[in-house]
Design a protein around this nucleic acid. Sequence first.
DNA 1: TAAGATAGTGTAAAATTTACACATTATCTT
DNA 2: AAGATAATGTGTAAATTTTACACTATCTTA
Lengths: 230, 230
Amino acid sequence: METSLPKFDSTFSIDCVIFGFEAGELKVLLIERNQEPFKDWWALPGNLVNNDEGIEDAAGRILDELTGLRELHMEQFHTFGEVDRHPQGRVITVAYFALIRINGKKEVKPMTGFAKNASWHAINDLPKLAFDHIKIFETSIQKLRRRLSYQPIAFELLPEKFTLTQLQLLYEAILNKKLDKRNFRKKMLSYGFLKELDEKQKGVSYRAAKLYKFDRRKYNKIFQNDMNAI
Amino acid sequence: METSLPKFDSTFSIDCVIFGFEAGELKVLLIERNQEPFKDWWALPGNLVNNDEGIEDAAGRILDELTGLRELHMEQFHTFGEVDRHPQGRVITVAYFALIRINGKKEVKPMTGFAKNASWHAINDLPKLAFDHIKIFETSIQKLRRRLSYQPIAFELLPEKFTLTQLQLLYEAILNKKLDKRNFRKKMLSYGFLKELDEKQKGVSYRAAKLYKFDRRKYNKIFQNDMNAI
DNA sequence: TAAGATAGTGTAAAATTTACACATTATCTT
DNA sequence: AAGATAATGTGTAAATTTTACACTATCTTA
């Protein structure tokens, strides 16, 4: 498979680990490759960076092209630069994670022929991945966990209005451990950046929970001197 | 200065923020450039990555060439990829910080003609830096602060045998705030990874302090399940 | 042997974290 | 409409951690 492909000179690419939260599970968006090498394998969405675009811009563009998703929260987390990462030549890859509210957007449509398919996979049940993408994924989850404690990233994964139980389930999914309900709620509310709405959950067949919103303005006020955070 | 220089295609480089601790101050090693652009300016040691070397290796090599330092603790912390970072063309730079025990090695000798000089600068008193190096530096110190709380990096900056006061001064320098002596010592010792030696500080004109060593084996045992750390 | 300089030490109050269980509310079923 | 079902929402006491705070001990030098 790999021997007949042309070699290229040093190139530069971006890979994205796109996280979503659905049905109490943390998921990652993978594409099914439509090109050699690793044709038909699952992979992280990624592509080469153009010479005339900044890497942040490139990350946004690539994400859009491969998944049709735009304007997501994206953060760089590591750069991978081993010489043998790619069978066709030297590729240095800056990895980003992106956070998305899956909501209704369950269906994702690749915008290029590069990927023939894109779908969500539970992080505990990933298929075999192309290149060194499993390593990139593992690094991403470590960084995500770490940042969860000092950046308000959880709210990028939830709908605008959410219940405290949903928030807790998300924390549990990211941290991969159970949390105590009362303590979790007490702590979250104590920060003061959650705004209780006059609205309740709908469409559930049991007592509906109160909805909350993340109040970014308050968050910024509270953590402006930073170096603290959640 | 910049208009007459040739343009190059996209290239890939590494810059290092080299931290040292001396006389109670956190310092950074800068080189004085010997080439355009920014000839005679102070800059972070950095250079292009070769096509046949991994970026970790490149970081080590570049550091060695520009400063004569080897085998330092190095960690990647961010990649800078704006299109206009370099006047001669597009350069994407992976930034590393390196930690060094200044000890006797105060004199640093660049091994290439690329830098005509290298010297230590207190972080609160840096000269004007070439390119976007001040931004890289600022990012590095933020990352360093963050990592101080979950990785045993302080010990990379101290001599093998150190006093608790030295350790505290280092923490204060990195975090840029005063700490309480009794609380600091209590906390540090409570971790259990500092080994008290039967030896005392020498050459001081006052009561000599006990010396301690960082016991990495114990550290690893304590934090093997990690996600906690200091 | 006195002066100078830093090392080394303990405790109480405050704040935070942890552990833990049941009554409430809404829906659904019969 | 009564009961079953399913998740919401709530408080307290104990344990732990963090904070604030000041004096004696030890060594060197003059």
